[in-house]
Write a protein that binds this DNA or RNA. Structure first.
Length: 459
RNA sequence: UCCCCAGUAGCUCAGUCGGCAGAGCAAGUGGCUGUUAACCACUAGGUCCGCGGUUCAAAUCCGUGCUGGGGAGCCA
C-alpha cells in the first residue's frame, strides 16, 4: 500500500477506509485502553492524531514509542469526536520503524532558538523551523515562477571566479595547492595552482549576469554567494543565497519598479500559499508581522534620493548616536529611522555619492552621484542593493581609473560596452533577509538550514 | 574586529549580604482518563562554562580564557 502524506489527508472531504501514513511521533498520551499519538511527516504544520487501541496485535509494543520515534500506521481516516482536529486515524496496525531513545533532545515544549541552533540537524522537526523551511522552499519556487512568468531567463553564473575584485568584501580563496607546499615556498604561486590564476568563491553573479542581459535581454541568477567578512551580526552569514535580476534597456526607475513588483509578488505568494505556516509567525513569533505583510503587499514603497534623505534626517530632530553627514554612508540607525519610523514601509534610497559606491554604477548628470538604489525595509535594513549600470565606455573607464582598477582584468566587461552597449540595470536581493522579513525571524542563522558564520561550520 | 550582556540539572530559569544546590518542564516508575503543551504520585538527575586568585568559607568577589546573545562596522 502506498503511503499518503498528512497534508492531503487533513484536506480530505470524506472519511477513508484504508490509509497508510508514515512519520515521526511528536507526542503521545497513553492509557490502558488507548494510546493517542500526534504524527507529523513534514508535509505540513499540523499533526494527525492516531488512536491505537488495546485490540491491536502489537499493543504492548506501542508503549515503547517515544517522542521522536518513526512509525507507520495503517488504518481508517474518520471524523474525530474530540476537540482540536477534524480528522484522526484509527489504527489497524502500527509499524515501529525506529524508536528514539530517551535522550532525544526535542521535547514537546518551547525551546530557545539558541539551543535549537546547537542541534541544527534536528531543529527542522519543530513547528517553527519546519514552517520556516517549508516557506523557504516555497519562496525559492516562487522566485522561479515570477521570473518565468515575466519571460526572464535563469542564468547559472560561476561559483568559482577569477576576478580579483568584485568590490563586495573579502573573498574565500579557492586553491588546489597543498598548504605544506605553500608554507615551504613562503607564498602562493598561482602559476602552479589549478587555474594558473588566483581564484575565489563568488561574491556576486552580477558582472556575468550583465553579459547575458546584453544577450538574452532579461536574466536572473539565484544561487549561493560567499563573503569572508568577519562580521558577526544577526543579518550576516558567510554563505547565503541571492537573487540577482539584470535587465537590458532598463533604467533606475525600471529597476525600482521591478524590485517592488518582486517583493510584492513573493510576499503575496507566501501569504496565499503558505498561510498555515505563516500563521505560526504572525501568531507566535511576531505579533506585528501581519501588519508588516499587509504593508509589503498593499503600500506603494517610498522613493527618495540620498540628498533628500540626508536633509530629512538632519531635520528629524532625532538624537542619533552617529552624526548624519552628507557624503558619507548612512548608519544602521539612520536607515532604521527612515524605514521604521519615518516612512513606516519599504523605502528606496537612490542617487548616492559616487565616492561611496562601486565602479560599475552609472554616473548621474550631476557628475557627483551615481544611479544606485538600496531598498531599506523595517527591522532588516538593506534588503536590496543595485543600480543602473554605467553603459558608456568612456565614463566606465574613467571611473575605473579613478578607483585604480585594472582595465586589463576587466577586458571582457569593457568589451560589452564596446559592442552594442545599452542602458541596463539590476540588483541583488538577499534571499535569507527576505525570509527574515516575511517571517519575523530576527536572526539570519535561523532561516538557512546550516548557517556558516565566522568560527562555525558545524553540520 | 570593537562595545555591552550572559553561561547553574536534558531544556527554561531562580539562587537575597559570600555561609548545606533549587523550581517548572522533560526523563524513569506506578496510577488514571476520548486524550490533545493531558492529569496525579513517586524516583533519579549537578565539573554551578574552563583555569588561576582572594577568603575560615565562592554559583556568588577579582583576573583570564572559551562559548553564546545583543549592538557597531561591512554588506545582501
Amino acid at each position: 500500500m502506498k503511503r499518503i502524506k498528512i497534508n492531503r489527508l487533513l484536506a480530505s472531504d470524506t472519511s477513508i477506509d484504508k490509509v497508510l501514513v508514515k512519520g515521526w511521533v511528536r507526542t503521545k498520551r497513553d492509557s490502558k485502553e488507548f494510546s493517542f499519538m500526534e504524527l507529523n511527516d513534514g508535509s505540513c504544520l499540523k499533526n494527525i492524531q492516531i488512536i491505537a487501541d488495546s485490540q491491536l496485535e502489537n499493543y504492548s509494543q506501542i508503549g515503547v514509542i517515544t517522542t521522536g520515534s518513526a512509525i507507520g500506521v495503517e488504518g481508517r481516516l474518520v471524523e474525530s469526536p474530540g476537540k482540536g482536529q477534524k480528522w484522526e486515524i484509527h489504527a489497524d496496525s502500527v509499524e515501529i520503524i525506529n524508536i528514539a531513545p530517551e535522550d532525544y533532545p526535542l521535547q514537546k515544549k518551547r525551546h530557545s532558538d539558541e539551543f535549537l541552533r546547537t542541534i541544527a540537524h534536528l531543529r527542522a522537526r519543530t513547528n517553527k523551523y519546519g514552517a520556516a523551511f517549508r516557506i523557504r522552499s516555497e519562496m525559492a519556487f516562487a522566485i522561479h515562477k515570477f521570473y518565468n512568468e515575466k519571460g526572464f531567463r535563469y542564468l547559472h553564473t560561476p561559483i568559482i571566479t577569477g576576478s580579483d575584485c568584485e568590490g563586495a568584501g573579502e573573498m574565500f580563496r579557492v586553491t588546489s595547492l597543498e598548504p605544506d607546499a605553500v608554507a615551504k615556498a613562503g607564498k602562493m604561486d598561482f602559476n602552479q595552482d589549478f587555474f594558473a590564476h588566483e581564484a575565489n568563491l563568488t561574491v556576486s553573479g552580477q558582472l556575468s549576469a550583465e553579459m547575458f542581459a546584453l544577450a538574452l535581454g532579461d536574466v536572473y541568477t539565484f544561487g549561493p554567494t560567499f563573503r569572508a567578512e568577519n562580521s558577526n551580526t544577526s543579518r550576516h552569514v558567510a554563505e547565503f543565497w541571492m537573487v540577482e535580476p539584470e535587465m537590458a534597456f532598463c533604467d533606475l526607475d525600471g529597476n525600482m519598479d521591478h524590485a517592488e513588483e518582486l517583493v510584492k509578488y513573493l510576499t503575496l505568494h507566501a501569504v496565499t500559499n503558505c498561510s498555515e505556516d505563516i500563521a505560526v509567525f504572525t501568531d507566535f513569533v511576531d505579533k506585528g508581522l501581519k501588519k508588516v505583510l499587509d504593508t509589503l503587499i498593499q503600500q506603494e514603497y517610498a522613493r527618495i534620493s540620498y540628498d533628500d534623505a540626508i536633509d530629512l534626517l538632519l531635520k528629524s530632530k532625532k538624537e542619533f548616536e552617529y552624526k548624519v553627514e552628507s557624503g558619507k554612508d548612512l548608519q544602521s540607525e539612520h536607515e532604521r529611522f527612515l524605514a521604521e519610523e519615518y516612512f513606516k514601509k519599504p523605502v528606496f534610497l537612490i542617487n548616492y555619492p559616487e565616492k561611496i559606491k562601486p565602479f560599475y554604477m552609472r554616473l548621474n548628470d550631476d557628475g557627483r552621484t551615481v544611479a544606485a538604489v538600496d531598498l531599506l525595509v523595517p527591522r532588516i535594513g538593506e534588503l536590496i542593493g543595485g543600480s543602473q549600470r554605467e553603459e558608456r565606455l568612456e565614463m566606465l573607464e574613467q571611473r575605473m581609473d579613478k578607483m585604480g582598477l585594472s582595465k586589463e582584468t576587466y577586458w571582457w566587461y569593457l568589451d560589452s560596452r564596446r559592442f552594442g552597449s545599452v542602458p541596463h540595470a539590476g540588483f541583488g536581493m538577499g534571499f535569507e533577509r527576505f525570509l527574515m522579513l516575511i517571517t519575523g525571524i530576527t536572526n539570519i542563522r535561523d532561516v538557512i538550514p546550516f548557517p556558516r558564520t565566522p568560527g562555525n561550520i558545524d553540520f
